[in-house]
């Protein structure tokens, strides 16, 4: 009993001395604090206040009453979300596209990095990289415009298709192609950029490992599975965990640019729904509830993924 009391007082004292030390530190290095202030205020105002603002998911938020005077309604909006059939469809679209992005989009940059790593001629590697990184810097509006043109009836894809005797297809207006186009185009845009991190990790592998393996008679394939991939594993796991935490964040811009009324049934995702029903139609509380649900799913998946990763590979974010 007495020991726990002393630890509590010790903790209180150290807490107190921490504030005193902080005060001293602030007085001594006030310029550092002054320089950090605008940035800290910015993070508070534009990244943390909106998170706190999510409480309106539990209110019937009215814009004129604000957060303080709008009535509290508990879980009403969450109940509505899961009984409203449209939203179930939107959730299904989001989950499916996310899943495809993860399965096909996540390994793509790893494979590209491994392939680029095998190119020995420096100038050739560098020219390839220049081309692969370019689309990352072009906005989705431009990429969307280009893809709509390429896949239009008189676009180059259909022209080539017809030359080989095929029938022209209106790809962007057909629901059955929508998700594939979304996944393929985002791989196309980001694969080079995402490969940079893996390429950096690959240059960090000790070359003597490969020399020793060659002396021992290990072929290229054996070197890949026994040296390269195990060395990349920490990087892969960290990026996989980050990707899983962002599982339902598909990137509003891409889908918003690609969506047409004809592809709504398969392409409308949580973000585009929240934008339409929230920003445009003013249903603030329901759409905030949707957003909160999305964040909670992301957090839960990150936590579970982190746990599994720590148990299986020893890599974890926290």
């Amino acid at each position: 009993m007495s020991t726990s009391i002393t630890t509590v007082t010790a903790r209180a004292e150290s807490g107190l001395s921490w504030t005193i030390r902080l005060g001293k530190n602030m007085r001594k290095h006030w310029i550092l604090y002054a320089m950090a202030f605008p940035g800290l205020l910015w993070f508070l105002l534009f990244r943390y206040v909106p998170v706190l603002g999510s409480v309106i998911a539990f209110q019937d938020f009215q814009i004129f009453n604000g957060i303080w005077d709008s009535p509290w309604v508990g879980f009403k909006h969450f109940e509505y979300i899961f009984t409203y059939s449209n939203l179930v469809n939107v959730l299904r679209n989001t989950l499916l596209i996310s899943l495809y992005q993860l399965i096909f989009g996540f390994p793509a940059p790893v494979i590209l990095a491994l392939m680029l790593n095998e190119v020995r001629k420096k100038w050739f590697k560098r020219s390839l990289q220049t081309l692969f990184y370019l689309p990352h810097f072009i906005s989705w509006v431009i990429i969307g415009g280009i893809i709509f043109e390429l896949l239009s009836l008189d676009g180059i894809v259909n022209v080539l298709l017809q030359q080989f005797g095929g029938e022209p297809i209106l790809y962007m207006q057909k629901p059955e192609y929508f998700r594939s186009i979304v996944v393929l185009s985002s791989i196309w845009k980001e694969v080079g950029w995402s490969a940079i991190i893996y390429l950096a990790a690959l240059t960090g592998i000790n070359p003597s490992l490969y020399e020793a393996a060659t002396v021992d008679g290990a072929g290229k394939w054996r070197q890949l599975t026994s040296i390269t991939l195990p060395s990349l594993l920490p990087t892969i796991m960290i990026l996989l965990l980050l990707r899983i935490g962002n599982f339902l964040e598909l990137g509003f811009e891409q889908i918003y640019v690609f969506l047409t009324p004809l592809t709504f049934s398969v392409g409308d995702i949580l973000d585009t729904y929240v934008f339409r029903a929230g920003v445009l139609e003013g249903n603030y509380s329901v759409t905030t509830a949707v957003g909160l649900f999305k964040s909670l799913v992301g957090f839960a998946m990150l936590w579970v993924g982190n746990y599994i990763s720590r148990k299986s590979t020893g890599e974890s974010l926290f």
């Binding site: 993070f43 105002l45 534009f46 990244r47 943390y48 206040v49 909106p50 998170v51 706190l52 603002g53 999510s54 309106i56 980050l242 935490g245 962002n246 964040e249 509003f252 973000d271 929240v274 934008f275 929230g278 920003v279 603030y284 759409t287 905030t288 957003g291 909160l292 999305k294 964040s295 992301g298 957090f299 990150l302």
Partner: peptide
């Protein structure tokens, strides 16, 4: 804040 994007509607209202 790198892992969690600001939620759209509260962001808009802010």
């Amino acid at each position: 804040t790198m892992i969690f994007q600001p939620p759209m509607i509260p962001y808009f209202l802010t």
